[in-house]
Structure formats: structure tokens, C-alpha cells
Design a protein around this nucleic acid. Structure first.
Lengths: 340, 340
DNA sequence: TTGTATGCGTTATCAT
DNA sequence: ATGATAACGCATACAA
């Protein structure tokens, strides 16, 4: 038991109790070769007894590295930031790095402020987490440590961005529908202002093109990212194009609305019409009836990739360009019977 | 423009360029009185030009305070941690404190490890974020800085815990139903192993008791926190007790299932049966038809309270005991017409 | 093998 | 009003 539980345990204290100098104590604790075995043992014993933890501040001041990474989010409250954050945290934690979290809440001034703060705290690197899949202005100028952009893409090609591959994800969905024999595929999606909406539409169109097919209804039905729009669009779609045999939706939420409307219209899913969502948003995807085939953005893994890219950069392997992170198709019953 | 953009800007450098000593430069930058106005101006100008930021490590090493708080979560992936985290981050950010985030992912070993890490990094305080509303083993022993427990309650009364007041929240819901004239109120909720389920049931029962009423079906229907259970329980309930005129649900997800089942059974909501949920989980609460009257846990505000309690503790106002954070009733159409 | 001394960047004390 | 110096806790180069 320590006499003064509140007195911070320093290396000096350990050295004093072990009857050696701080230098020797330091060497012993850091497994340097030039220290006698019994001396090392004594120091380690004392350190253990006092639960000595080297002061990371002093260490960082000396080494120039804090083993800390700043994570700057635009909007933590949004639905996409959290899984990425999770993946980042896990990957960095495994690498013995800590995360300093800052949420700029969509405010550019706050963002500048946090960047300054993080740099003042001597973070070894920075991960800038976007709130949308869109391209954003680079913040890298004047930042003396490696930066990785996650989810949102930097407009500076010298930066490294890790983003979701929505074109590829939509391809997966489209190919799945075609493989099931569907030929009259419609697309109901969210706001065209979102790159996510445009990219997903592009992926679908490309696959249809390659198969010599046209999009049912002729064009993607852009609207809102809501169930309500899904319902509304589905009703409109079916009224004008009753022969549609598949609907690829820009999100699970939209897909959920589409399924509701199809149900009301007496169309069976998937028998009459197959439905595919996007995001694999658990609630909508698994609780809808039938459960949704959908594309999982794999955001947690994306976050992990961003973190590992940053770690690589810290080790000197600085990259640049855009790493598109593939999603994966999750097949459930809204596109056909699932074996097993 | 700096000549060597990558060379870190130190106070020494600022002092050199301003033609003063580091001591004077420090005083000038820290607005100490004993420095000549023109000297101060010169120093500030140079600092501004070089975008000088004092090294937080050096400052912390000297002052013993890092203006950093450790946020240790059990399970960041869960649904409740995020809003609390958000509230904490906002409140601490306003107080110029930074957040070091660690996710123990439900692992006790990882938790100990992170606590050691955070202490090594000289955090000024710690917020321990539970993944459930239940009582948990105190971790405070051996932690030399203030600790606040959020969402989950510490079993040590000397600790300070900030938790959601589920008994009170359920009271709000129950009183609302009684005020609307409902008299045969049933309770469909989640697993009895959760304190949240037990507390919400207790709050309801107390209000019914006070009104001289009995719970429809005699006892709370404990089950799973799922829509499926909501549907199933509603069917069972209505079969056995067709006269029920209100269902208070332990969660919005359950309530959503209940409403589905009631719809299928031809009961109108709220005309025949009023339904109240819990959590104000946006998706379920607003997208269900009709939208759900529910209890908002106000977790973001809870997080803010926890953060402010910690700030108070850092300033010497150490508290203890349990702060129950009231939720608030959100009235929507599932219990009756909403004016406006 | 061990100890002494230096420095990391900043602030505070005490001369000047 | 200004500057030299010590100190925070640690790691390292170098001396012993």
C-alpha cells in the first residue's frame, strides 16, 4: 500500500525506492540491455507495487510522439459517423493509439478551432470524418501531421480519402437482381444532391446498360431519404409501369416504404416484385416484411481501413488518392427465397 | 510565410523573432500585467504570424492539468451510448475540455487497460459510460481523478452516477394515459433482467395504484425488446383481455409491433386502444402509423449533465449519489388527437 | 553496470 | 519591465 495514495507515482519515486538512479530505473523499465538482472527485477518489483505508469506527457514531450490521433467529425449525430468512428476506435486501440474526439457539428469555425486544439495537443495524425459521401474541401493545408479523410472525400488528390464505393455497391445489387431473372428494374432513391444517390443510380444504370436493358420508368426516381417518399414513389411507379418486376432503392428506409406500398397494392414481395435496399440499416432491413436484401456499406470496416492507412502514414508510408471501400451484398428474402 | 513549414513553432522561436526572452514572451502571450504594451504587441504579432500554439504537453507537464477527460464506454456500438457521448462531447467542448475516447467493448480486461492508459495520459477526470441502465460494479478504487458514471449506475454510493429516471418517465406516460380517460392499461415490455424494464413497470404500477386501478392482464408482459414480441404479446393480450383500452410499451420498437398487431386485429389506434412507447427512437416513433406518443430519455442532456458534474468535480465540487435525469413525454397521435 | 547531466516546451520565481 | 533559471517527468548520451 502506498502511504500517500494521491501522490502521483513518478519514475523518480520508483528509483528512490529501488535504490537506483532514475536513469537506471528508466533503462530497467524500458528493457534496455545494459542493466543487471537483479537490478531490473528490483525496479520492476517496485514499479509493479506502486502501479507505476510513465507519464505520457513527459514521454511525449521528449519523443515528439503522443500515440494519439485526432478524430474530427462534421456531425457526430448523423447516422453514418458512428459506425466509422467505431471502426476507427477499434483499429487504433489495437495499435495502442488513443483517440481524441472532436465534433465540429457542421460549423467551420468550430472545425478550425478543433484542428488548432488537436495540433496543440500534439496529435500524431488526424482523421477527418465527413457526414456525407460527397467531395469536400481539403483541410490539409497547414497541418503538419498525416491526415486521412474518411467517408467524405477530399477535393485535393494529394490527400488520402477512404470512401464507400457506392457505384460498386449498386452494381452488386443490380447484378443480383439480373441473376434472379429480373428485367424491368426501377430505381427509387433519395435526393439527387447527394453523391450517394447519384453514384448508386450510376452503378445500377451501368449494369443494366451492359445487359442491354433500360431502367424501368426511364430514369431514377429521386426524392427524399424517407419511407414516405418510398411509399409515394412506389404508388406512382406502379400506376405508370405496372410491369415492373424489381425495385432497387437508394436506402433501406425508402425500401421499407416501397414494400409497405406494394403490400397495400396487393403485389407480393418478392414473387411479383423484388426489392433491394441500401445501407443494411438493421432496423429497416431485418424488421421489414419480408426482410430486405440490401447493400452493407461496411462502415466499420471502412473506419478500420482509414485508421490503418493513418497508422501506415505515421510509419512513413504516406498514401494519397481515393481508396474506395467495397460494400457487400446481404441477401435476404425481399429478392427471393433464401436457402438455409 | 514560415521558412520551414514543418519545423514546429515553439515559444523559443517566437521569443527569438520578437527579440525578447522566452519568459517575456510567455508573459505577453498569457496576458500577464508586467509587460510593456509595445513588447506585448510585438510578441503577439510574431505569434500570430507563425500561428504559434503553445505545446499542450509541456503546459500540462508543468501545470498538472491536461484539460482532457477520459470517456470510457462499455459498448459504443449499442444504441444508448451514442447520444450520451454526444452530450458529453458537446458539454466538455464548450468547457474547453477534450475527450479521449476508449471503448472497452464489454471486456473487463480491456477496461482496466484503458483506465491505466487514460491515467498515464494524465486525464483530469473520467466519465464511465454504461451500456445498460443497470447498477454496475464501481471502478473508482485507485483512480486518483474525479469519476462520473453515466447511464449505468455505480454500486458504490460514494460515487456520482447520472442515470435516466425510468420510474419517473413511466409515471409521465401512465399519467398521460389516465388523463385521457384510459382505465384498462396493459404493459408490454422487454426482458425482466433489465432494470429499465422493471423500473418502467414500477412507475406504471405506482400510478395505477394511486388511481385505484389494476394493471390489465394482471402483470407486465415481459419478453424481448423486439417488434416481434410486441406483435405476439399484443395478440395474446387482446385474445385474453379484449377490453384493454391502452397499452404502455417498454420501448418504441415493441410499441411499433403492438401497433402492427392491433392494426391486423382491426383495432383502431388511438380510438379503440391508445399506445405509448418508450425511448423516442425517432425511426419507430415517427414512422409508425400513427406516430407514437413516447418518453424521451433525453440522453444527450443526460450526457451533458454528467459532463457538467465532472467539470464541477474538477473545480472541487465533488458530488456523490445518484442524479436521476428526468425524461420527457412526447405526445403524438397514438394516444389521441394532437392539437395544432 | 550504474550514475550524472542534458533537453523536450512551457510557466513561475526571482533577480536585475 | 525584462531576463536568467528552475522545474515538471522522462529518456538518452556520455562519463565513471
Amino acid at each position: 500500500m502506498a502511504r500517500h495514495p494521491s501522490a502521483p507515482v513518478t519514475l523518480t519515486e520508483v528509483a528512490r525506492r529501488a535504490g537506483v538512479s532514475v536513469a537506471t530505473a528508466s533503462k530497467a523499465l524500458n528493457a534496455r540491455p545494459d542493466v543487471a538482472p537483479e537490478t531490473r527485477a528490483r525496479v520492476l518489483a517496485v514499479a509493479e507495487e506502486l502501479s507505476f505508469q510513465p507519464n505520457a506527457l513527459a514521454r511525449g514531450l521528449l519523443s515528439g510522439s503522443t500515440r494519439t490521433v485526432g478524430l474530427l467529425t462534421d456531425e457526430l449525430a448523423g447516422r453514418f459517423a458512428i459506425p466509422v468512428l467505431l471502426g476507427v476506435e477499434n483499429a487504433l486501440g489495437d495499435g495502442q493509439l488513443s483517440v481524441l474526439l472532436c465534433d465540429a457539428r457542421g460549423d467551420a469555425i468550430r472545425r478550425r478551432h478543433y484542428i488548432r486544439t488537436l495540433l496543440a495537443r500534439q496529435v500524431d495524425g488526424l482523421i477527418i470524418l465527413g457526414d456525407r459521401n460527397d467531395v469536400r474541401t481539403s483541410l490539409t493545408a497547414g497541418i503538419p501531421v498525416p491526415v486521412v479523410y474518411a467517408y467524405g472525400e477530399s477535393d485535393d488528390p494529394r490527400d488520402l480519402s477512404v470512401v464507400a464505393d457506392d457505384v460498386g455497391g449498386a452494381r452488386l445489387a443490380a447484378e443480383h437482381l439480373l441473376a434472379l431473372g429480373r428485367r424491368r428494374v426501377a430505381h427509387i432513391t433519395g435526393e439527387e444532391g447527394y453523391r450517394a444517390a447519384r453514384d448508386r443510380a450510376a452503378g445500377l444504370l451501368r449494369v443494366l446498360d451492359e445487359a442491354g436493358l433500360a431502367l424501368a420508368a426511364g430514369r431514377p426516381l429521386y426524392g427524399a431519404w424517407s419511407q414516405r417518399w418510398g411509399r409515394q414513389a412506389a404508388r406512382m411507379l406502379l400506376a405508370a409501369h405496372p410491369g415492373v418486376d424489381a425495385v432497387f432503392c437508394g436506402s433501406d428506409q425508402i425500401a421499407s416504404g416501397v414494400i409497405d406500398a406494394l403490400h397495400d397494392l396487393g403485389r407480393r414481395v418478392p414473387d411479383d416484385i423484388a426489392v433491394v435496399g441500401y445501407d443494411n440499416w438493421e432496423i429497416f432491413a431485418t424488421e421489414s416484411r419480408p426482410p430486405l436484401t440490401t447493400v452493407d456499406l461496411d462502415l466499420e470496416r471502412l473506419g478500420g481501413t482509414a485508421a490503418r492507412q493513418l497508422i501506415a502514414a505515421l510509419e512513413g508510408e504516406r498514401g494519397s488518392g481515393v481508396v474506395r471501400h467495397p460494400g457487400r451484398l446481404v441477401v435476404r428474402e425481399s429478392t427471393g427465397p433464401v436457402p438455409g
